[in-house]
Design a binder for these strands. Structure first.
Lengths: 367, 367
DNA sequence: CTCCATCGTGAATCGTTGG
DNA sequence: ACCAACGATTCACGATGGA
């Protein structure tokens, strides 16, 4: 489909096969309402990573993610961002997604090019890959940056729609969503994943619903498996995807052919997860509800444990969680530490579970 | 207090009044274990960017003021980061915290200076300020970057302590914590808040607990109300704070004088196997905990091995270490023989790893 | 059919020590 | 410097298959 825009034609509702910088150059100035870009992350993986069971992690080792230096990556970023900026309408806005490997470089370049950052948004994964070697924190999120073309831009933000998606509370900058897996994950005939980094449609869906209107043109310069285009089509937006790899482009086109526009109601079935309310014992310590050094007792004060700064407890030289140590002193295999252990308050013993309610109220986040 | 470090003295456990770059220059090379920095967002920059801008809306070419402001901020960042890098021990690590206004510039500079990013960590606020005008998402988080001095650095990470804080699950990169308010928030005599951006002590507490050991030196070049120093003192670390504003420095010193370090037992955290004394398998045989000739099994008794007098084991004619043979029978390249091989005890299979604890205690008692 | 145990897998910058 | 050996380490889901 071709759409008339400021005298030039726009190849909307198509996946263009080609290098994004070259293909972007063919598009007219100020013709696109929204850009979503998921560029290569420049992961710089050093060697194979084994799981504890010695199986190999199928990491991203594709050629398209190889850059020889930060300088090289910055040049690449500058090239495609400059083109995106040119084709973006003055009141349009742009999203990029990345991890700590590349997101700081993307953000810096956006600012240097005159983009006006509106929010950084955190995609919190419900089911990230663990850190197998126990050397860092679980890398459980990715970062999106939402930016207007300039400070004076009258960008679109569908505040009420976002609020409605969040039980009538303002949508926050942290979004909780599962990674793309199960039936949504596109597979080859062999059963292998079709694309190494396919994003969940719910993520793009929220982005598109938040920052564009029906009939707008959404551009994705790194289209990949076509998730942005798919979400756009479902939500009644026009899409332009650019993809260098013929296989990915073919997969995306096939995917798009099977999609019916659904309207904004589609979001209701794509929704993110409701905030979970797990309260670890460590939070009670950090919140100051229990000080390190406090003595815990079982309900008849036959056993004693001492709370430590990391939320572990110590019993006669042994150490562990409230659950493990509760089980150990009883000689049983499992124990609910929340009901087993008590603190002394005004002469009586109270289960630490009662403090958890206090913690829950203090930690009530509205995402 | 002065601490001798590589021939120069380190003014530990004090808040230094002065400009951070100048004062950092006085500290010796490679003398600090951990840096935590909460740099200003640069109000100058904010002011410039908010100034009405009469350049054309579609300026791919940047407004000069804007560019020079970012440049100024980058120069400032470079100055203090370079000093921090110099005083940081080779195996130390550094944290910075910021928002989307400055965090991308901080991250880019860290990478350009050779720091090796370990994680970006999201502080999710339970009680953020709402977006009053409904033009953006509620800015509900801040970003921390944790970086080692170099890729080769053997940085500290108290994995087990972090796991303990999170109810025996790996600590993730998203941390949920309230902002600093209530009694923790320092007030002036007038009741006004003493510092505009006082961070919660729980946040610094987790940072310090995660990436330093007792007795380490923690440096905060933008000390402010002294939260980093307070958390460090409480957790038995030495602190050095640098603060330019005499009022803030005074408040921080007063605050620190009232803080008592936690007791020795309360300060202890979970120790992992990595910290424990190494016991070769041969010691178990020598100590008589396993007799030569004992049969070892994998956990489902699919493989058998026989222990030999020299601490090697034999499987079907082949022989070698518990690790080598474990790998061999599984057809994998590596194996932890301690958890792979089991002995039969009262009808059940127990990992030989449990015997290692016994050996460790026996060897400790006799040494 | 259900239920349960097992297995596979996801954008990952994922060792240390002694010879 | 390099190399070999030691040995530490995983969470949430979906798919699969046997009982």
């Amino acid at each position: 489909m071709l759409k008339e825009e400021a005298g030039a034609t726009l190849p909307v509702d198509s996946i263009i096969l080609g290098d994004c910088v070259a293909e972007l150059a063919e598009l007219p100035d100020r013709s696109v309402d929204l850009v979503f870009a998921d560029p290569p992350y420049n992961l710089q993986l050093q060697k194979d990573l084994l799981r504890p069971n010695n199986s190999k992690v199928d990491g991203v080792d594709d050629d398209w993610d190889k850059f020889s230096s930060f300088e090289n990556y910055d040049q690449f970023t500058n090239d495609w961002l400059a083109q995106c900026r040119r084709v973006l309408k003055d009141d349009g806005s742009l999203w990029v997604i990345g991890s700590y490997h590349n997101i700081f470089r993307l953000g810096t370049q956006l600012q240097d090019m005159g983009f006006w950052i509106l929010n950084d948004v955190i995609w919190r994964k419900t089911n990230p890959m663990p850190n197998f070697r126990g050397r860092r924190f679980t890398n459980a999120h990715e970062t999106l940056i939402w930016a207007a073309k300039s400070q004076k831009s009258r960008y679109r933000f569908n505040y009420e729609a976002m609020k409605a998606l969040n039980d009538d509370l303002q949508m926050r900058s942290d979004w909780l969503m599962p990674i793309c897996s199960g039936p949504e994950r596109l597979k080859m005939e062999t059963g292998k994943k079709a694309h190494p980094t396919q994003k969940p449609e719910a993520l793009m869906g929220r982005v598109i619903l938040a920052s564009s209107n029906e009939g707008d043109v959404v551009l994705d310069p790194f289209s990949g498996s076509g998730t942005t285009a798919a979400a756009a089509k479902k939500l009644g937006r026009h899409y332009i995807g650019i993809e260098r790899d013929p296989d990915y482009a073919r997969i995306a086109r096939k995917r798009l052919a099977e999609i019916e526009p659904l309207g904004d109601d589609a979001m209701k079935v794509m929704q993110g997860k409701r905030q979970e309310q797990r309260i670890p014992f460590g939070s009670l310590v950090e919140l100051g509800l229990i000080s390190p050094g406090t003595v815990l007792y079982d309900h008849r004060a036959r056993h004693e444990a001492r709370v430590r700064a990391d939320g572990s407890i110590a019993v006669k030289g042994a150490q562990g969680s409230i659950h493990k140590m509760g089980a150990q002193v009883q000689g049983s295999s499992a124990c609910n530490g929340w009901t087993f252990w008590h603190v002394e308050k005004e002469g009586t013993l109270t289960p630490i579970d009662s403090l958890r309610d206090v913690a829950r109220r203090q930690l009530e986040a509205t995402s």
